[in-house]
């Protein structure tokens, strides 16, 4: 039932500005792939090309192996969730959800039945008669999702779906949208600049930088084995430790802050990827403590994120410390 989406060599330029420089991406049926990138990376442009709201200069997009490049958005059978939700303000909640069914000339009985199913799916079964303006932000997003899914589209496209929600609601809706996407089993492409959201929701993350895909992989792969320095620092925090001491191999080790612990006893033997330096700042963050250290060799900032609390008295600014790597086998080396 679910269809795969294939993106081949999609290029888009606005005047002299190349926004997408030939992007290839294959999405399996039922998979949720997040396009992650900073603003200007081309992620929204790619989503609009898949939706047909923007025409690519070259390349092709196929649903289920058939090119949709020449189809208008309304003929692509997609559901598109806008950042601003774009609910029709003059229609009720139920009329909004029924809109795609009406556009497809479904009979009134089917419209009513499917609309109720969709509202139940997003836990708004009682809200059908309400005006859109009376809904909260989270409720509006649920209605927009119900509307996007009502006509059983082949592909669901989410454009910064959580951007307009506050932090608490955002985390709740990330899990909720993921649940609904799994239940419906619909192939989904989401766009975000929020790495936590990408990690939480996705089967795979596709990281875009300046119009080029730099890495595609599961959240674990991208986090544990980043393709390059950009991905390493963009997806979570990373200490990039140069490995010049290894017979001139010249690689860079990616050590995550949670893989470092802080030792004040410099006499103990040093392990792999450890580093010495002086304390710059200690900040208490609840479940973890964040210790910033100026590296002795490079002068760069290194960060350790230690579970629980640390002995803050021994970590006054300027105190000499060693950062010891807890699990050296989890360190990824970039060559």
């Amino acid at each position: 039932m679910a269809v795969g989406v294939d993106i081949w060599q999609v290029k888009v330029a606005f005047g002299a500005l190349e926004v997408l420089k030939g992007v290839d991406l294959n999405i399996a049926p039922g998979e949720l792939v997040t396009l992650l990138g900073a603003s200007g990376s081309g992620k929204s442009t790619l989503l609009n090309v898949v939706a047909g709201l923007l025409q690519a200069d070259s390349g092709d997009v196929a649903f289920d192996g058939r090119s949709v490049q020449d189809l208008a958005p309304r003929d692509r059978n997609i559901g598109f969730l806008f950042q601003s939700y774009a609910l029709f303000p003059h229609l009720t909640v139920a009329e909004n959800v029924a809109f795609p069914l009406r556009a497809r000339h479904r009979d009134k009985k089917t419209q009513g039945r499917v609309t109720q199913q969709m509202l139940d799916l997003v836990h708004l079964g009682e809200a059908g008669g309400r005006k859109v303006s009376t809904l909260s932000g989270g409720q509006r997003q649920r209605v927009a999702l119900a509307r996007a899914l009502a006509a059983e589209p082949a592909v669901l496209l989410l454009d910064e779906p959580m951007a307009a929600l506050d932090k608490h609601l955002r985390e709740e809706m990330q899990v909720e949208v993921r649940r609904i996407q799994r239940d419906v089993g619909i192939t989904t492409i989401s766009v975000t600049h929020d790495q936590t959201e990408a990690m939480t929701m996705s089967d795979r993350i596709a990281i875009l930088r300046e119009g080029t895909l730099v890495q595609v992989g599961s959240p674990e792969e991208c986090y544990m084995r980043p393709a390059d320095r950009f991905v390493a620092t963009f997806l979570g925090e990373a200490n990039l430790v140069p490995l010049t001491d290894r017979a001139g191999s010249g690689g860079t080790a990616v050590v995550r802050p949670e893989n470092y612990t802080v030792e004040t006893n410099l006499a103990a033997p040093a392990g792999p990827y450890s580093a010495t330096g002086t304390v710059r700042l200690v900040s208490y963050q609840g479940a973890r403590c964040r210790v910033e250290v100026t590296a002795e060799t490079t002068g760069e900032l290194l960060v350790a994120s230690v579970a629980g609390t640390v002995d803050r008295a021994g970590l006054a600014p300027g105190a000499p410390v060693r950062l010891r790597c807890l699990e050296p086998d989890k360190v990824h080396v970039l060559t």
């Binding site: 709201l53 309304r74 059978n77 806008f82 774009a86 029709f88 795609p100 556009a103």
Partner: peptide, 18 residues
């Protein structure tokens, strides 16, 4: 008018007349 309303209607399958 919010330009996204027009785009949303397009993605929902509506033709120009609708």
């Amino acid at each position: 008018l919010d330009p996204n309303l027009h785009k949303a209607a397009q993605t929902l399958g509506a033709n120009s007349w609708l």
